[in-house]
Simulated scan of single mutants.
Amino acid sequence: MMLVPISKPLQRALEALSNETGEPIPQLVADALSHGLGIPVHTLFQVSTSGALVQGIYERAVSSTFLLNYGDFGLGTFDNLDGEMVVLDGVIYQVRSDGTVNKIVDETGTPFAIVVKFAADQDQTIASASSFEELRAICDRYRDSDNLFYAFRIDGHFDHIHTRAMKATPKGLPLAKAAAIQPEFDFRDIRGTLVGIWAPQFASAFNVVGYHFHFLSEDRTKGGHLLECSGTNLRVRVEKLNDFHLSLPESEEFLRADLTKDPSKDLAYAEQPHKKENV
């Protein structure tokens, strides 16, 4: 290991930034070196766990804008499951249950989110995908391991997009019950972006295993959690993620929760369509 001395002003600045963001000094230094040298860090940053969501822990863990210290691309939700979060090009969007999309500029809270500083390793174009199932199969070609995380950005024209957006949910209502009343939306002939994360099977205790995509239209007026899709001339960019950082809440509710149960069944139910509303 090489020890590199730094000046007192730099040390004080690092300590102040670490206190402000909560990020350890070694990570701040690594990020600065990555930016300065143009070398991606390929780190996935996650707030809380999917298991906590299943148990109805929906209160603020961090502010949504705090996430931008750790990534410019990702997905999640907001306090009390009030809509779907899409983080794209360094901007946070909230897709609400009434179908509207808000650009987040304040300190709105989030109980769960996943972000990366997106830097694609692969950049491909596919002619078409007739269904979400086919799109997932195509994405599988760009993964060379089942034991790493991957970020997927898919841009293009979609013949059909079917999404949902969670309604604000009373505290403590289990995720499966909250998902049963989620509004769903159909969009036709629309351009936009799919923001996705693929998580390996061993992550089932704290993340959604497999593919998890949120959609945002090119004009930033439509979106949601992806349930089904078809599209043509789609640009697929992929980043392999070999570093993982998990930030756990310190609320009394989280500290006392029983998180020993397997959340996969309830998560699978929440991922499925339940009620259809055409817009």
Rank of each mutant, 00 (worst) to 15 (best):
L216R: 05
C139F: 05
L81D: 04
L241Q: 04
E277Q: 15
R96P: 00
A203P: 07
E84H: 11
V95Q: 04
G224P: 04
D186N: 15
M85W: 02
Q55P: 03
D79V: 13
Y93H: 11
T110M: 03
P273A: 01
A203L: 08
P26E: 12
A30Y: 04
D140L: 12
D72F: 10
L227P: 10
T125M: 05
T260P: 02
R143E: 05
H274W: 09
D189Y: 03
R141K: 13
N147P: 01
L37K: 13
L234A: 05
T21W: 03
T77K: 05
V29L: 11
F244C: 09
N242W: 04
T108K: 08
V86Q: 02
F244P: 00
L255F: 05
D72Q: 10
I57C: 11
T100K: 15
D266H: 09
T77W: 01
S264K: 15
R96M: 06
L17E: 15
L37C: 09
F158T: 11
F244H: 08
F149Y: 15
Q11K: 13
F66C: 00
D121Q: 03
S247M: 15
N207M: 13
P24Y: 02
E277M: 14
Q182P: 04
K167I: 11
K103V: 08
E239N: 07
V29M: 08
I39E: 11
A180P: 13
G74M: 03
P249D: 01
F244D: 00
S48A: 14
F149M: 14
V279L: 12
K222C: 02
Q182L: 02
F118Y: 10
P9W: 03
K276A: 14
K103T: 07
L248E: 09
A61T: 15
P24N: 05
D262E: 02
Q201K: 08
L28Q: 13
A16M: 03
S128W: 02
P26H: 07
D266G: 00
D82A: 15
R96E: 00
T77I: 07
N69M: 02
G36E: 12
S63D: 07
L67H: 07
L248T: 06
V208G: 02
Y142W: 07
H245R: 14
A137K: 14
Q27W: 03
F149A: 13
P263R: 00
V87G: 12
A129W: 00
F152G: 10
E59W: 00
D140W: 08
D123V: 06
D123M: 03
L53C: 07
R191H: 14
D79R: 01
A176T: 08
H212F: 13
T110V: 09
S63A: 09
R237K: 10
S48F: 01
D82H: 11
D219H: 06
I114T: 09
S18A: 14
G74N: 04
L68M: 05
K103W: 02
G109F: 05
P249N: 09
D258T: 04
N233T: 04
